[in-house]
């Protein structure tokens, strides 16, 4: 009844060309909302297989970008291509290749998880009843929802709902998976597992993960972009970014009073409370004074990018 995860799949995978890499190309993408907010400013990005992290603070334009890729929003200018496929005009074709987990999503509260998943499977065009049943069961199994598949979705906890979200996004044969801020509301262990799963998926298809949590990206993303106020500040491998910062991040433990002075004189990357004192990270090519060199972390990259301290080449 339940397709065994092992059986058959191996042999299939080998000779399937559509598991091979696709490329998402975004060029000169701009979008201004009717209330005057410019959400995207001339975005250029190229994303291939692997887990791609889209990092940025709230309101940076991440969701606008994600929605545009997911065919739900019209940009003012620019283009988005999935290989040869124009995402903006061939929406229907793109939707066949798409798995999308929106930032915020709800379901029909009085309908069970299995029924709902079945419904979404139909939306995706899986019309063969047997196949659909096997697939939904398998996905429920893999997201550990099988035991609660008959419960109403309204009664699911945040984590369960998020896993359901993944299950639904994986229905069909997605070649590009868009997950918008998926880790919010997950406990640390759950988040960990979730990211691992995405990372595994990234081996086979394009996975774009948007988040404002640096750790999400640091741990698993093969590639990333930092985006702020609609502008891409950095694109590249996280390791490369860390490499760029090597030797240019300095730390010092200061008091609260001192912090404000430092704020004016130094290019502060971040500050964090530790034992009543504040540890600040400062960006500088040489030691700005009584600082201690420290190994850069991705958070430093993030702030350096957002605060425009570095001319990261995009």
């Amino acid at each position: 009844m339940i397709l065994s995860p092992r059986q058959g799949s191996e042999s299939c995978r080998d000779n399937l060309p559509n598991r091979t890499s696709m490329k998402l190309q975004i060029q000169h993408l701009s979008k201004t909302y009717s209330n005057g907010i410019q959400a995207l400013k001339n975005i250029d990005l190229t994303i291939g297989n692997g887990l791609f992290g889209l990092l940025g603070p709230n309101g940076a334009g991440k969701s606008t970008l994600m929605r545009t890729i997911a065919t739900l929003q019209e940009p003012d200018t620019g283009s988005v291509h999935l290989d040869e496929l124009n995402v903006l005009t061939k929406k229907h074709e793109v939707r066949k290749l798409l798995g999308y987990l929106p930032q915020e999503f709800g379901t029909y509260k009085n309908i069970s998880a299995e029924e709902m998943l079945n419904h979404i499977a139909i939306l995706k065009g899986i019309t063969d009843k047997k196949v659909r049943r096997a697939l939904t069961h398998r996905l429920l199994d893999q997201t550990n929802l099988f035991g609660v598949r008959n419960k109403k979705l309204g009664s699911y906890s945040g984590g369960m709902k998020q896993r359901f979200g993944v299950a639904q996004a994986l229905l069909g044969n997605p070649k590009i998976l868009i997950v918008d801020e998926p880790t919010a509301g997950l406990d640390p262990a759950e988040r960990k597992r979730f990211l691992n799963m995405l990372s595994e998926l990234g081996e086979q298809i394009i996975v774009i993960l948007s988040t404002h949590i640096v750790d999400d990206v640091e741990e698993i993303c093969s590639n990333m972009s930092i985006i702020d106020k609609g502008v891409v500040k950095y694109t590249g491998r996280p390791l490369d970014a860390l490499e760029t910062l090597r030797g240019r991040v300095w730390k010092k433990t200061v008091t609260k009073m001192e912090e404000s002075q430092f704020d004016e004189t130094y290019r502060i990357l971040s500050s964090r409370l530790a034992d009543g004192m504040i540890e600040i990270h400062v960006f500088s090519d040489n030691n700005p004074g009584v600082f201690e060199k420290t190994k850069p972390v991705l958070e430093d990259v993030y702030f350096a990018a957002i605060k425009n301290y570095l001319p990261f080449e995009a």
Binding site: P5, R138, N144, G154, S155, N173, M197, E200, I205
Partner: peptide
């Protein structure tokens, strides 16, 4: 949701590597 039951927040690990199923016939 008065009668809502708290379900066990299922802590089993999320499925293994081949989470992506084999190609599904889409019609």
């Amino acid at each position: 949701s008065l009668f809502r039951k708290k379900h066990d927040p299922n802590t089993l690990p999320v499925g293994p590597a081949d989470i992506l199923p084999e190609v599904i016939p889409i019609n």
